[in-house]
Design a protein around this nucleic acid. Structure first.
Lengths: 151, 151
DNA sequence: TGCTTGCTTGGAGTGCACTCCAAGGTTCTA
DNA sequence: TAGAACCTTGGAGTGCACTCCAAGCAAGCA
């Protein structure tokens, strides 16, 4: 049971593609600008993510400034992946809520991710269709230009 | 020369995937609501497309109501494909302008489409990456739930 | 002829995902 | 200890791609 919980935490929060953290565990207290440099997000966006509940509450220094951890970085990397799928922010917030609610939401989380996977697959198919159209048109222009050069 | 021009017009305007028109050439004068039914776009969007220059100017009845042709339908189908690629509307307008300017813009049109093709390809690669992450996560939840059922 | 449904316009409104601002407190380097 | 650079907040603003509205004219049927 404890073992499963630990494993669950890792997989929910940690980078799915293992990437070196800028600092080892224990010394991982990053300012917002360090996270900006590492993730490519803006400080505005990071604060906004926290406000709307897309980030677990971020740790603070004794004076109230944000201190992000390696775990936060990993969560942000996963959120970045979800964002690339085109998933609406509201759905990402829903997923974040499920993670906060604990292990009994595994089924709901799996369903949400499976729906997302279906969406991604059909989007890929759609793009491959449009690729065929583009190939066709580009081929036409290339042919027409070659023909006019030979005149 | 004339032959190339004719071919150019066809390929710029006509459906790249041949699809039957609702009415044969000569009787193709569709009201806006018929075009709504055929394309799935709203009347608002069709008028907006015309206003921003994404449509060649649409023919009018003697009282000023729009009458779309088969050619308009084909153009709309192609625009729909470009829209699926995620191309910004401003770029589609640029392409429409190039088409209006005539045959000497073949090279520019080809370049625009080739850039779009590169974008689509990298978007597909990106989506395939996220698919791997999703597979991984979904696998984890499936495993965890199977494990807890066996307890 | 009257009635209903459809079409016209310019301009205002919507929803999303940020993006920026002002005013003031904090941290770091010299 | 001074000054620069960085951080905080709530709330307002931005850009995109639509989406809707009001007021009035047009079309088709009994």
């Amino acid at each position: 049971m404890t073992l499963i919980e630990t494993k669950a935490d890792r997989t929910d929060i940690c980078a799915t593609v293992p990437r070196a953290h800028p600092r080892p565990e224990g010394q991982d207290r990053y300012t917002i600008s360090e996270v900006v440099a590492f993730t490519g997000l803006t400080a505005h966006t990071l604060r906004w993510y926290e406000r709307i509940g897309l980030m677990p509450h971020v740790d603070r220094s004794h004076t109230g400034q944000r201190r992000f951890t390696n775990r936060d970085l990993d969560w942000l990397a996963f959120v970045g992946k979800l964002r690339l799928t085109g998933m609406p922010v509201a759905d990402m917030v829903r997923y974040a809520e499920l993670v906060r609610e604990g292990e009994h939401t595994f089924e709901a989380r799996q369903e949400l991710l499976e729906q997302t996977r279906r969406d991604v697959r059909s989007r890929i198919a759609e793009l491959q269709d449009t690729l065929a159209v583009l190939d066709h048109k580009i081929g036409f222009y290339a042919d027409a230009r070659r023909a006019s050069e030979r005149l």
